[in-house]
Design a binder for these strands. Sequence first.
DNA 1: CTGTTAGCGCTTTCAA
DNA 2: TTGAAAGCGCTAACAG
Lengths: 326, 326
Amino acid sequence: MSIEKVARLAGVSKATVSRVLNQHPGVRPETRSNVLDAISACGYQPNLLARQLRTAQSNMLLVLVSDIANPFCSLVVQGIEAEAEAHGYYILLCNSASQLRRETAYLSLLTGKVVDGVITMDAAACLQELKDLIGDAPWVQCAEYDPAISASSVTIDNRQAAFETVHYLAAKGRKQIALVNCDMRYLYSHQRESGYREALSALDISWNSVAYAGNISCEAGRDAMRELLARPSLPDAVFAVSDVLAIGVMRAAQEAGLRVPEDLAVVGFDGIPLTSSLNPPLTTIVQPMNQMGARSVQLLLERIRQPRAAVVHDLLPWQRLERASS
Amino acid sequence: MSIEKVARLAGVSKATVSRVLNQHPGVRPETRSNVLDAISACGYQPNLLARQLRTAQSNMLLVLVSDIANPFCSLVVQGIEAEAEAHGYYILLCNSASQLRRETAYLSLLTGKVVDGVITMDAAACLQELKDLIGDAPWVQCAEYDPAISASSVTIDNRQAAFETVHYLAAKGRKQIALVNCDMRYLYSHQRESGYREALSALDISWNSVAYAGNISCEAGRDAMRELLARPSLPDAVFAVSDVLAIGVMRAAQEAGLRVPEDLAVVGFDGIPLTSSLNPPLTTIVQPMNQMGARSVQLLLERIRQPRAAVVHDLLPWQRLERASS
DNA sequence: CTGTTAGCGCTTTCAA
DNA sequence: TTGAAAGCGCTAACAG
């Protein structure tokens, strides 16, 4: 069922079949339809592996995600996939769980020419290790990036978003604004904490309280909130660096008998859809997830076509979605 | 940077380098270490495309998912990925959104020998169309399957789970048990509705009410619940065929001033983690998501190794997780 | 407009 | 224990 068989069936050469397959101009219509007939007659399907080997391009993109079960990640992946599809590219997904072993395995596909480029969404702290494995293959860092790495990135201005959020809560009359942060291996974690602290000092508020969640899950958010509640001075607002954490924060608050938003305002981050259906609906900082994915693909494809294209660091706009939780 | 270069550098033939690369026995230790030295000296990385073409196997598995942003799907995918990794396989993910065009594109990778087999999680109603595209390539249907298709499947006993759930609610004293179902393109949707109806008739309860959500999102669940609430006779319990829908159901109930569980018991389905952090925590029917993914991979690999292995339809155990919502 | 030929980089007989 | 050579299925010069 190779191209050779089709060629024999149609009474032409392999080259002609190839031309028809790739819609090259300059094939006599009659020959063309003969070939097409032969193809459908024997149900021929081109061997993509052979084609990719020959043309040295695979039309596949590797996406390295730390946790696909995190809705933020999966929504960015949706954006990646849609844009990739629009350009005739396929997505190979690696749910790395930030495990170097797994990442290494998948990255061998990059060096092994099975994929044309890679988009990483892993924690900044993990990126440095990937650097050597990726070498100078086409690479775009999405949502997270290491400033010391010369690969393009697509993010939002996390520091600014956090800064504005604290101002927003203060304007709402909140005096004791706490932060539920996560793993400091993430750059955004540092950036959002900076924004938080800078805003407090700009507002001349000395009260502050920060708890760190062990991972990005509701349970971790709940634990972090419990920690906050165990401290001598209680917050009247909590800003969580992720919606998923915020869900746990609200839960812990409610378990402790606090009313949201009366006793405690809660604001999340990311803008995942289900925040609108929580009890109460959650105020959140929306990241343009689809767009971040799409833009990453665009930058990656540019780099694939033009390996020495300039490195760019894109900052996309975020927005606040105000709901009942604050 | 091909195998040829390494061969020259080590002063051996390509064949010997290949033997070392593939840990074939019968290479003199000294030759072996020479080759290894040459490999690291020039930073050689094998071209996997060429290898795959030659050996006619890629160690890649295609996974066709209808919606990766659905936590149930992403948790199954996690199970798939972990098991695949344990066997040295990679995952190519297609987030089909049940669009035939996209599925067709990805399935050309199957016929094109880029992947060794496929796991589908798409709605049963879509599977028939995929049948021709997949032909008799290795295929396992996960979570959803079409009984008329001769490919192995991995699911739970949906009918039984629904049947038991209605009994559970009745035992709790609920008399008016409604069902929030989804898209009837899914087989599980039929099966769970059958279980629901059979249980009601076994219990001699004639009251019933079913609403259909347009898709699997909180919003759709909310709309379905609003529809239920607009009917003349109100339910005192709702069984939703998905946790995500149940979140919307609870929201709509609370918006209508109903207390959960006092006025309305709510039970979900799937067992996604965040159900434990909802307000109130949601009672749910837990599917063994990781295990379903893992088992699918096992069956698929068996079939890849043994193309005429028997078709099996695996039923995995589910369990009820009782929480405050009921 | 079409055919011949070479070769992508690898593995795998077969022979030495 | 190692090498030479064939070939996986395709595309792309180069001729004709």
